[in-house]
Design a protein around this nucleic acid. Structure first.
Lengths: 293, 293
DNA sequence: CCTTCCCATAAAGGAGCTCTATATCATGAT
DNA sequence: ATCATGATATAGAGCTCCTTTATGGGAAGG
């Protein structure tokens, strides 16, 4: 079999037309080059070079071989360049999965910074419910997912908490009077409730909170976006259940009022999930560092 | 720098998805493969494989690299195939130079045999005068040339005699009576002479023969082809100067008659000329062997 | 004729690949 | 839980074969 390193020597020798010069380019000695070429000629059982007094010249067969070796090496060089680009983040891609609201309210500033710092890294976002995100992480189609915790334990996934989220009930002007005193779950369930659509982890979370207190609830308005819930609450349609950080501005302005449940709503965590047996790509690793992961 | 042999190991490992299996394919041991991959990952300073319990799987970066390495190796393999074809004469070309008459009367049967034996070797013929042929050999555009000897000594060319050629004077029916007795050069010069055009080595040869005997000659008919000279001689146009081997049939039939010069015409040699500092291509070497070179 | 440039060869030395042996870890069955 | 299986990682010794140094020889050019 042909030792591949011979090809590199062959290539230099062919292009230089001079074994001594080729040796210099390769930082080895001339006998080394002679030896390698000789090995190669024996392996192929044909002469590759004519030895002349002023150097070497390819034989007919050698010329043919050069055509292939040249192209082959050009490809390998391109590959090494590509690797370098991936390494230095002047190429490659970052594939993130999360829900729309996490993108908008949490991930966006990081993505913005990342993109400005590494404009050549293509960013691909995919939204979906927690279950869809974890599935994509598992199959490897995204680098990591940003999800609400807790989530079902999966032996193939690693989950790291990166921040906590405090949910709250908010209502418009009509609820100003309710904001002062604690309300039972039963009291709250009597208000028109604005909730995220079923299937979302937030919806499941609040339903469990009520259920733990033996209160059955029914949503008056179901929407797919937290932003829309907030809008409807401001318009007086009822009481919305949303993360408090999403409505700090409205609470300060007084356009929304927070209702205090007698039993505190536990904080929820937001986490990043990755595949346990996969180390992150260079692009993903850099992003995770930004999140002080 | 990346040792090229690593790429081969990388390729097998990537395709097998299993270092142990790759090791088997390469007839080396598993630790060898582990070691090589590790070297490679260190050289590129990035992970190329995810190590899993059931084998290995390419990382994002590894997948990128594979694209290049795969193609590169496909090219090298194609190159090796090509070399094998050249070696086994199922490819390549044979480039021969000679005068038209040498092709027709000498080389043709060999070319025919050669082509039947190695139908995949492309045969390229180029005709010309001796000086043109030798020039092409020197510049490397043909593998060898078939020429009339003697020729000017050239330090870059090797010349081997492969056969001798006896020229003779022949005439048609009208010369039957002259065939019995020796004729002086002077006698012969009086006949209408059918000669090859000036510039050919044959023409120069016969002119020198006459000149050595202080006889000036003038051609009555000058043609570029020995075959035509023979035709005209048969038609009675005069005495043609041609190689005897070209007219053995006519002499036997009695359609042509040979004139015997008092001073014998020296035999001429036909030789093969090749470049001194170049070994013949595989295709050419095989042909030269056929000529019992 | 002598110098210069280049390739081939021989022999010694050593870098690093490869091997054997063993550890470790994950998975799946008992 | 425990064990068997199959995979990769690691350590250390061994040896292959590449590289080097030293030298010879041939061709071209002044």
């Amino acid at each position: 079999m042909i030792h591949l390193e011979w090809y590199r020597i062959f290539l230099h020798a062919a292009k230089a037309g001079n074994l001594t010069k080729a040796a210099g380019e390769l930082y080895i000695t001339q006998p080394s080059v002679s030896y390698a070429i000789k090995q190669m000629e024996q392996a192929l059982s044909m002469k590759l070079f004519h030895r002349q007094s002023k150097g070497v010249e390819l034989t007919t067969e050698g010329k043919q071989l050069l055509l292939y070796v040249e192209q082959s090496f050009a490809l390998l060089e391109a590959g090494e360049k590509k690797m370098s680009a991936l390494k230095h983040l002047t190429g490659g891609e970052l594939r993130v999965g999360a829900s729309d609201s996490l993108f908008k309210h949490f991930l966006f500033p990081y993505l913005d910074t990342y993109h400005k710092q590494y404009p050549d890294v293509r960013i691909r976002l995919s939204h979906g419910k927690t279950s869809e995100i974890t599935a994509r992480v598992k199959e490897g189609s995204i680098d990591f997912g940003l999800i609400h915790l807790p989530t079902a334990d999966d032996p193939h996934l690693d989950v790291h908490t990166i921040m906590t989220l405090q949910d709250c009930f908010v209502g418009g002007e009509a609820y100003r009077d309710q904001a002062g005193h604690p309300l039972s779950a039963q009291d709250i369930s009597q208000f028109p409730l604005l909730l995220l659509s079923p299937g979302s982890s937030t919806r499941r979370f609040i339903e469990q909170w009520f259920a733990a207190q033996d209160v059955a609830i029914e949503a008056d308005i179901e929407l797919g976006s937290i932003d829309l819930l907030i809008e409807f609450a401001k318009l007086g349609f009822g009481v919305a259940f949303v993360p408090r950080s999403y409505v700090v501005k409205e609470l300060a302005e007084g356009t929304l009022h927070e209702l205090k449940p007698a039993k505190a709503i536990p904080a929820r965590s937001i986490g990043i999930t990755t595949r346990r047996d996969m180390t992150a790509s260079v692009a993903a690793a850099k992003f995770l560092v930004m999140l002080s992961f």
